[in-house]
């Protein structure tokens, strides 16, 4: 051991730490973006990340932006809560009875499969340009994955577990409370993660669509003014919001699915 750092040591060091390499890749991408924005691309189209970051306060100082962001956050929260509650109730109702599963599951899958984006103008027509239409559109995207995974969680249960519980004298309620329900929890949380992805998509689509109010007004304005710094700033803030919400739900999923290791 002479303490000198050889190339081989460095190689082993990096090979053990994939996350470090990942970080380097991200840094390289940002550097590329920085270089491109500074030297190669017309500044009316692209702004370097350093400037976007230092100008974030300008985005917040633009009249109405903080309010629009706050409202978007609440729309996401409300749409997600509604999706979870209704999704769970419908999922249980459809999953627990063979007959209702047979009758309604095809309808649910059909609705899930239709491109809801085509009816976005209808949502605005019925619910107006305010938060109601965005929440409704978010729910229309978030609710189906939750229903489908809840149903799957109720139905994929190994028959032997039900037989075993029955042989030990479990009542119908006990079967639900101690067997079906805990079995469903991990898939329900997977559904919540997919539901969150859906809600984010639905709410943001509706926000971007309405160009006269909310986030869509500002993205349209920044685009028309060729102000990439503020546009990127606003988009980054929304992306950070999306990442944070996704991460919370993902962690919950991991936590509640701990026993699912076999």
């Amino acid at each position: 051991m002479n303490g000198a750092l050889t190339f081989r040591d460095l190689r082993v060091f990096m090979l053990r730490r994939a996350w470090l390499a990942r970080l380097l890749v991200i840094a390289a991408l940002f550097l590329l973006w920085e270089a491109a924005a500074r030297w190669w691309v017309d500044p009316i189209f692209l702004s370097p990340p350093s400037r976007v970051l230092t100008s974030l306060n300008e985005v917040f100082e633009t009249g109405g932006v903080p309010g629009a962001l706050r409202i978007t956050f609440w729309e996401l929260a409300v749409a997600f809560s509604i999706s979870v509650v209704i999704g769970l109730v419908v999922g249980l109702a459809v999953g627990l009875s063979r007959f209702s599963h047979r009758s309604f599951m095809p309808i649910i899958l059909l609705l899930y499969g239709t491109p809801q984006i085509t009816i976005l103008p209808l949502f605005i027509l019925y619910f107006g340009i305010g938060p109601a239409s965005k929440v409704a559109f978010g729910v229309s995207h978030g609710i189906f994955p939750i229903i489908v995974t809840t149903v799957a969680g109720v139905q994929n249960i190994k028959p032997i577990l039900m037989t075993a519980a029955r042989s030990m004298g479990a009542s119908r309620w006990q079967l639900f409370r101690w067997v079906i329900f805990p079995h469903m929890i991990p898939s329900f949380f997977s559904g919540m993660r997919l539901g969150m992805t859906g809600v984010l998509l639905g709410v943001l689509l509706a926000e971007l669509y309405v160009s006269t109010a909310g986030i869509g007004y500002f993205t349209t304005m920044f685009t028309q003014n060729f102000d990439p710094t503020k546009l990127l700033g606003l988009i980054s803030i929304l992306a950070a919001m999306a990442i944070a919400l996704n991460e919370i739900v993902r962690r919950a999923e991991v936590y509640f699915g701990r026993w699912r290791t076999d």
Partner: peptide, 19 residues
């Protein structure tokens, strides 16, 4: 089922995985 008189052990793993 007569849970007070009869107990079962099954072939497959019939333990509740979440407990």
């Amino acid at each position: 089922p007569l849970p007070r008189d009869i107990a079962f052990v099954f072939q497959e793993n019939a333990l509740f995985p979440w407990c």
